Amino acid sequence: MDLFGSNFDDSVFSEAKDKNTVSVSSYNAKCCKPEWFGESAALDTEDSLEKQKIFKFRGDLAMWKGKYQTALDAYTSCLGWVAENNLSIRRDILEGMARCCAELGHRDRAMELLDLLSKEASNTCHLTSLLLLKVTVYRHFGLVGPLMSSLQELCSLLPFNPWNWYNLGKICMHRLDHGTYLKDESMEMEAEDDKVSEESLWLKACVCFVRTKLLLRILQQQQSSFVLRHNQIAIQKAEEALARLHPDQTTLLNLTEVMSEDLNPEKMREDNQDGMSLSNICVPTFRERWWDRILLSGLLEADGQNGLSDVKA
């Protein structure tokens, strides 16, 4: 009696007698001269795609060289030649225009472009790019409140990215050092309804640097060379920031417990939402995911004033 699967049909191992012939056609790659899209490039062509490429590459080169007005002009011209269904290039052009406007000090126009990109965002990749762009623009114009809100959204969307937590912690420290927890113009666009006070900023800074350390230590297991050294430097800076904030040991232990609850391999794999449609996911806000649980623990009232006195000293 043959075991199941122990005998095979000989035809499986025989070469096929009749093979389909594959016709191979020659392909000649298009060779372009360096900076072929420069001022001498022909724009009298009827090919709209060719015009789009010329203006797009001109804008990218000018942006790289720091010639932001030239880049903005090229991107603006390019936008008129982008096909309606080419959403990727359209978003790329709008983002380039927003960055140019920020560098040129055109605040209102930069905000209009951010709003336009917000309306057209349809998946998590779009949202991530938009939030990173907002961080750049808001930081450029010194809009500390909106900058902090955007970083909080990034931490909610990408909870296992340590650098968003680290940057949010630095913003909290900046606000504590410069007194920008007070109501001012930079708070006009703050999205989340946070309690803006010294005590809440102090605790939020502690939260961010604790989370940063936890995530970076997990990543160390997969790193080597200069990446590992960069990681270790970041951990050291997070520890130095926590030393300045000076939370007591009980507070540190409680924060570590809360901020490490979701740090297990299965949870981290399940939370990968890269490219998902925004209509199919529900991203909890920073307050919903972490802040309310921390506030309910009573840490703010228990240790906030002690920690703040050490920061000010």
Rank of each mutant, 00 (worst) to 15 (best):
D9G: 04
D10A: 02
S11I: 13
S11D: 15
F13D: 12
S14E: 04
E15R: 01
E15M: 04
D18W: 14
K33F: 03
W36N: 02
G38C: 15
S40D: 10
A42T: 14
D44E: 06
T45R: 00
E46C: 13
D47E: 12
F55N: 05
K56E: 12
D60A: 04
A62R: 11
A62V: 08
G66K: 11
G66I: 03
G66A: 04
T70I: 07
A74E: 06
A74D: 10
S77E: 13
G80Y: 14
W81S: 09
E84A: 09
N85F: 15
N86P: 07
L87Q: 03
I93H: 13
L94H: 14
G96T: 02
R99T: 11
E103K: 13
E103N: 07
D108L: 09
A110D: 09
D115I: 05
L117I: 09
S122M: 06
C125L: 03
L127K: 10
L131Y: 01
L132C: 12
V137T: 08
R139E: 15
G142Y: 01
G142F: 10
L143H: 12
P146M: 02
S149F: 00
S156K: 00
P159S: 03
P159R: 00
N161K: 04
P162Q: 06
N164P: 00
Y166P: 01
Y166A: 11
L168T: 03
L168K: 03
C172E: 09
H174W: 13
R175K: 09
T180V: 13
T180P: 06
K183T: 07
D184H: 10
D184I: 06
E185Y: 15
S186H: 14
M187H: 07
E190V: 15
A191S: 06
E192A: 08
D193I: 02
V196S: 08
S197I: 04
E198K: 10
E199S: 11
C208G: 07
F209Y: 14
V210Y: 01
V210R: 07
K213V: 05
L214I: 02
L214S: 08
L215Y: 01
L216Q: 07
R217C: 06
L219S: 05
Q220S: 15
Q221L: 04
Q223S: 10
Q223K: 09
F226Q: 14
A234M: 14
Q236M: 06
A238C: 00
E240F: 12
E240S: 04
A243G: 02
R244S: 09
P247M: 06
T251D: 00
N254T: 08
N254L: 13
T256H: 05
V258Y: 15
M259Y: 04
S260L: 03
L263P: 09
N264F: 10
M268N: 00
N272W: 01
N272P: 00
S277L: 04
S277D: 15
L278E: 00
S279T: 12
N280T: 04
N280D: 03
N280H: 01
I281T: 01
P284R: 02
T285F: 05
F286P: 02
R287K: 00
R289Y: 10
W291Q: 13
W291V: 02
S297R: 13
D303N: 10
S309I: 08
D310T: 05
V311E: 01
K312S: 11
K312G: 02
